[in-house]
Design a protein around this nucleic acid. Structure first.
Length: 196
DNA sequence: TGAAGGATGATCT
DNA sequence: GATCATCCTTCAA
C-alpha cells in the first residue's frame, strides 16, 4: 500500500529514516514506472542539525521546500552534477528530511538500466544518491512534488527488515558539520545483494 | 556582480 | 585510492 500522508508527519526523523528501509520508492515518468527497495537512508534533523541545509532556521529559495509539511520531495543539485532525493517529514516548522541514498531496483529494471546506460544488473546500479536518482529518473523538477501524487511515491510492500540487518553509522560527506557529523544518523540495510 | 564551495560519481593508476 | 568533472546556491561587496 502507498504510505499515507500521516506517515510523513511523524517528527521523529531518526525513527522514520530507519522505518523507510525496506519500503519501495516508485517513480512514474512519461508512463514509465520504475522503483526500488530502499536500502540506505540518512536523517537530517532539521534546524538544529549543522549538516542540514536549513540549520539555524535558515530559509533560502532552496531550503524553502524543507519548510513545508511532511510528505513532499526535496530534490537539489550537489557538486553541480548529481541530483539528491530527500523526503520532507515532520511539520512546516522543523525542516526535517530523510535523504534516500540507495535503492535496490525491482520495478522497471530494464528502464533503470537504460537510464544508467548499463546493460546488466550490478550491486552498484543504484548504490549512491546520484546514481539512485538517475536510475529512477528523478531530477529537480521533482522538488516540492507531493508523495501522494502520481509522479513519485513510496509503498509499503510488507517487506520486513530485522533490526539485526540494519547497520547504523555516521553520515557521509558532512565533515563540515562539526560534532553533528558524528551523529549515528545513517541507516543501511545489510541484506546481501541478490542479482535479479 | 563575483567568487567559493559542496549530503558525488566516473575514470584512471 | 586519487583526481577531476561541473554548476547551482550562497554570501560578500
Amino acid at each position: 500500500m502507498t504510505l499515507p500522508n500521516q506517515f510523513y508527519e511523524n517528527t521523529d526523523v531518526i525513527a522514520l529514516a530507519k522505518t523507510l528501509l525496506g519500503m519501495t520508492l516508485i517513480t512514474k515518468i512519461e508512463g514509465a514506472v520504475t522503483g526500488g527497495i530502499i536500502t540506505e537512508t540518512e536523517a537530517y534533523n532539521g534546524i538544529s542539525d549543522k549538516a542540514c541545509h536549513a540549520f539555524g532556521g535558515k530559509r533560502t529559495p532552496r531550503t524553502e521546500t524543507m519548510f513545508q509539511k511532511g510528505g513532499i520531495a526535496y530534490v537539489y543539485l550537489c557538486y553541480g552534477i548529481h541530483e539528491l532525493f530527500n523526503v520532507v517529514v515532520g511539520d512546516e516548522t522543523d525542516a526535517k528530511v530523510v535523504l534516500i541514498r540507495a535503492v535496490y531496483p525491482c520495478i522497471g529494471v530494464g528502464q533503470i538500466l537504460k537510464r544508467r546506460k548499463q546493460t546488466k544488473m550490478t550491486s552498484s546500479i543504484c548504490g549512491g544518491p546520484g546514481k539512485m536518482s538517475q536510475g529512477l529518473g528523478i531530477d529537480r523538477s521533482f522538488n516540492g512534488v507531493s508523495l501522494a501524487s502520481n509522479r513519485v511515491w513510496i509503498e509499503d510492500r510488507g517487506i520486513k527488515v530485522p533490526n539485526t540487518e540494519v547497520e547504523t553509522s555516521t553520515r557521509i560527506g558532512v565533515d563540515y558539520a562539526g560534532e553533528d557529523a558524528q551523529l549515528p544518523y545513517r541507516f543501511v540495510w545489510t541484506n546481501p545483494v541478490k542479482p535479479l
